[in-house]
Design a binder for these strands. Structure first.
Length: 749
RNA sequence: GGGCGCUUAGCUCAGUUGGUUAGAGCGCAGCAUUCACAUUGCUGAGGUCACAGGUUCGAAUCCUGUAGCGCCCACCA
């Protein structure tokens, strides 16, 4: 038996250990079955890796995610289950495209339009590939036991088929429609974004009270007011009962007299200001809704670059930022400005990916209708019968309300329901070039404005196709594909089953779907988790996973978010190099209850590095006292021997319970305490004289060897590298790899 | 405006359905040096469990209120 070095040096062994795991093939459950490690009809345990964005490198949040998921996966694998963890990456359309556009502008001074669509997409693909390789390397460094043979990308060929299939089915069921609606337009990125991608900020601005005929109206955005020709008040407002709905008034406005129409609508807050407002349906969501209800005209004031249109008269062509003070000046001159409130707090919408101001615009876009009824032919959803008529909203609600999906911590279930209650139709089209192109074609024969026509008859209808089309299937005429791409979450929503082969009815889909667990950050509960429930519910009539485990954010030691501007980012790879992957993993698991943020400091990681060294030295001590150990010899245990074995049994039971209940932080802490302060400080110290005693030595050797081996098993999911390395040195019966050893406690036995 | 959460030792956090003197890690103080490990061991100091009421034989734990911090949602023009 070789003697171990005095200290544990993770750098020397981690990569080789990972290579041994990978070469064994046991990350792939098919091999577990083939080699008899898992029974061929053993229970399955499957999770998908939330695919990291190919926008660069992994951060501490990813490291936390990998640590938690790998711990659970390794536990279930040791429990003898057919365990599958599917890896992959996400094309993250808007984030990736923005990143490449920025670099392009910085390095070459050119825009995507200078390159053209095809060339630009090539550049993005090259960047994505590079990021992908970096990410894959980092995933390995963390020790993640993912099945690389099943790796997927949200934008690869197989996923494209899934996306087009899903789109077509939804379109055919009337759940996807194209419509002119008010959307969130980012003038800088030149694309729309969904409601969820908006980040609201508060800003102190001037609030202008303007004379509008006999009324006073108020606005923070006078530059939108040129075209206002509807004046709206609440139907119950007694102050304005002399005005009738539909009544016309001629009054003096910014660029001369206008004919205004009185509208009565209950959306108006009588308490607020004067209780009267004018509306700008083209550039405000509330106003748009009012206009829709009363069938009013909408006029565009601001163009897609944020500049005023001809309606602004002499200010046409000017950017709204510049124009505002000039408009105010003009209003003042005309005597239309009554007063200004200078301390008004205005909420402004910005793009959460890039921070640019959002300018609402009316645009032709594709939407998913979340309130439209459809029939679910077959349903595995609890409380929804085969053939039931439901809506997407209802599917999302029922999956959680019925208890079929459990969200941890459970307070997020409330947040989830609240979000669904407020959910509006999902804008899925993006004016980006990187992403799944919308699988819709327009026949352009005799129809030069194909995309803006209303598609009533024949081949003037849009053609939705799973296969790529080159000519119109009706008239063989030329086709034009919709230039837009899909919201990245449309493809991510399919992730649990698109990675398993859907739309093919594969064996993987049969065995591993629904997945058991979805572990991700709480910040993407709506973006992703909800969309997966929607897609799986609709396309499969099933849940995508039965448990959702939401981890918190990894913050710096002062509790601040890690960000470039604060320069407080800790790179997981740096930590791994300095302290080892095991110490890094433990520091992200201990003290991290689901849903709560973790504060990370290097001190914490250093502490766990010491712990891995302690484990090393426990083994070292044991080996030094095992030269004459005969694992097969019959021994009789003393009372103390039995006490050690009993105590371990209790520990194993507790750890198992904690892991089953997703209390990883508790399990890890208990193991830490047991290994260090019970096994090393108490049991080993007490064993030193016992090992000197000829009569008691053999039994104690046996107790220490078996207990320590079992402790390594319990520890393995948390600190896989050091335990795997130590496993090689342990005497007695064992499998080659600790990774596929049997868990030392069977629950429900 | 609506909703949710947090507040326990200097710091980071446990405390699983209310039950004996409230725990851990880090940090701090003292002691120990060729013992598996100084990346160590032993000992110790340190808490009116945010505050005020209430329920109970018994409350860090349940209820009500207050304060501070944080998060989510929302069409106050």
């Amino acid at each position: 038996m070789a003697e171990l070095p005095k200290h544990y040096n993770p750098q020397e062994t981690e990569d080789a250990t990972y290579a041994r795991w990978e070469e064994s093939g046991y990350f792939n459950p098919d091999n577990l079955v083939k080699d008899g490690i898992a029974d061929k009809d053993a229970e399955a345990f499957s999770i998908v890796l939330p695919p990291p964005n190919v926008t660069g490198t992994l951060h501490m949040g990813h490291a936390a995610m990998l640590a938690i998921e790998d711990t659970l996966v390794r536990y279930h694998r040791m429990r003898g289950k057919r365990t599958l963890w599917v890896p992959g990456t996400d094309h993250a359309a808007i984030a990736t495209q923005t990143k490449v556009e920025k670099e392009l502008y910085k390095k070459e001074g050119s825009t995507r339009h200078d390159l053209g669509r095809e060339e630009f997409v090539k550049r993005v693909e090259a960047f994505a590939q590079e990021s992908h390789d970096t990410i894959v390397n980092q995933v390995r460094k963390m020790g993640s036991s993912v099945d690389w043979s099943r790796e997927a990308y949200t934008l690869d060929e197989a996923r494209n088929v899934a996306v087009r299939t899903a789109f077509k089915k939804m379109y055919d069921d009337g759940l996807i429609y194209r419509g002119r609606r008010i959307v969130n337009w980012d003038p800088r990125m030149q694309t729309t974004i969904s409601d969820d991608e908006i980040e609201w900020r508060e800003e102190r601005t001037n609030f202008y009270y303007l004379r509008y005929g006999p009324f006073t109206i108020a606005t923070a955005r006078p530059e939108t007011k040129f075209g206002d020709k509807y004046v709206v008040m609440h139907p119950d407002d007694k102050r304005y009962k002399e005005y009738q709905s539909g009544q016309k008034l001629t009054l003096e406005w910014i660029n001369g007299p206008v004919e205004a129409t009185v509208i009565k609508d209950e959306a108006i807050d009588m308490e607020l200001g004067t209780g009267v407002m004018t509306i700008t349906p083209w550039h405000d969501a509330t106003d748009f809704d009012i206009a829709e209800r009363h069938n009013l005209d909408a006029e565009q004031i601001i163009d897609e670059n944020g500049k005023l249109l001809s309606i602004a008269g002499e200010l046409a062509g000017m950017h709204i930022k510049k124009a505002r003070p000039l408009i105010v000046e003009k209003l003042k001159e005309k005597g239309l400005l009554e007063r200004v409130d200078e301390n008004y707090i205005h909420r402004i919408a910005t793009n959460s990916r890039g921070g640019e101001l959002i300018e609402p615009q009316i645009k032709q876009q594709w939407f998913v209708d979340v309130n439209k009824k459809f029939t679910l032919p077959t349903s595995n959803l609890k409380d929804i019968a085969d053939g039931a008529e439901v809506t997407l909203k209802k599917v999302m609600q029922m999956a959680v309300k019925s208890g079929q999906i459990e969200i941890l911590p459970d307070r997020f279930e409330k947040i989830y329901f609240h979000w669904i209650d407020n959910l509006r139709d999902w804008n899925i089209s993006r004016q980006l070039w990187y992403g799944h192109r919308i699988p819709v074609y327009y026949c352009t024969r005799g129809n030069s404005e194909a995309r803006s026509s209303n598609f009533e008859t024949g081949c003037q209808k849009p053609i939705v196709s799973i296969e790529e089309l080159n000519e119109c299937p009706n008239c063989k005429g030329p086709l034009e594909q919709d230039p837009d791409t899909l919201d990245t979450w449309f493809s991510s929503g399919l992730w649990t089953f698109s990675t398993l082969g859907w739309p093919e009815q594969t064996a993987d889909l049969d065995v591993y779907h629904p997945t058991n667990l979805l572990e991700t950050g709480y910040d993407i509960l709506f973006f992703w988790v909800a969309r997966m429930i929607l897609m799986s519910g609709y396309l499969l009539g099933d849940i995508p996973f039965s448990t959702v485990y939401l981890h918190g954010l990894v913050r710096d030691e002062a509790g601040r978010k890690m960000s470039k501007s604060l320069d407080n980012i800790i790179d997981p790879l740096t930590l791994i190099e300095k302290y080892g992957a095991d110490a890094t993993r433990l520091s992200l698991i201990i003290g991290a209850a689901p849903g709560s943020d973790v504060k990370l400091s290097e001190d914490k990681v250093r502490g766990y590095k010491n712990f891995t060294n302690k484990l090393w030295n426990i083994s070292r001590f044991l080996l030094m006292n095992m030269e004459d150990y005969d694992p097969g010899a019959a021994v009789s245990f003393s009372k103390d021997d039995r006490a050690i074995l009993d105590e371990f049994e209790k520990l194993a039971e507790e750890i198992t319970k904690d892991i089953e209940a997703y209390r990883l932080y508790l399990a890890a802490e208990k193991l830490y305490h047991y290994a260090w302060h019970t096994f090393a400080d108490t049991i080993l110290e007490a064993s030193k004289p016992v090992l000197q005693d000829e009569a008691a030595r053999a039994a104690r050797q046996h107790v220490l060897a078996t207990t320590w081996k079992n402790t390594l098993k319990l520890l393995h999911p948390f600190v896989p590298f050091v335990t795997e390395e130590l496993w090689r040195t342990m005497p007695g019966d064992k499998r080659d790899l600790l990774m596929v050893e049997t868990w030392p406690h069977q629950p429900h036995a």
